[in-house]
Amino acid sequence: MSAPARPESLARLERLVAALAAKGLVSEAELAAMQARTDRASPEIGARMVARAWLDPAWRALLLADGAAAAERMGVSMAGAPPLGVLENRPGLHHLVVCTLCSCYPRAVLGYPPGWYKSFEYRSRAVRDPRGVLAEWGTALPAGTKIRVVDSTADYRWMVLPMRPEGTEGWSEDQLAALVTRDALVGVALPQLPARAAA
């Protein structure tokens, strides 16, 4: 899966870019600017959206009603991006996001999808054996928890709003955001308190 591209593929890409550049359709500057923009998106954006939802009920309502509008409110440009749905975990209900057909992912708020999200194994097994997949991440849900697996598509992207861990009362938005990993936003993991320093 993560094998490097073949030399002939690199050459094929450069021939295509050169042909497009010769027609004035695509420039190196445009490619560099787009790549820089894409590189800037990271799961820290999604984590911040979650932390704010844990603290502010009005924000939480907005996030659940229209994730893209909430992202825009945080200064993320969603122009050209598909709608963003946010799945609220509750006691007894956990969400897991997959793109069975390819790799659809809320890139504006999570960045590039990791290799495993695009892997054949994750795509096929997330819907058939979600608990087995979670176990591989060391994620165990409380007994009796239902799992809803949601398929991200070219036209609609999803992220998870995990439950706020107990023991975080009084924490700031920054402290809370630091608990929310990319994996928790996809649903393969839960936000964890850092292991306590020995008393």
């Binding site: 690199l10 894409t38 069975t100 290799g115 054949f120 194994e121 096929s124």
Partner: peptide
């Protein structure tokens, strides 16, 4: 491409590839 539930990968663990795309991929 329609891989949801495909039995072919049923017993294969998910390889935890965390690497960001390489230069070719980003381009």
């Amino acid at each position: 491409h329609d891989m949801g539930g495909l039995s072919r990968f049923r017993c294969s663990p998910v390889e935890r590839d965390e690497a960001p795309p390489d230069a070719f991929g980003k381009r």
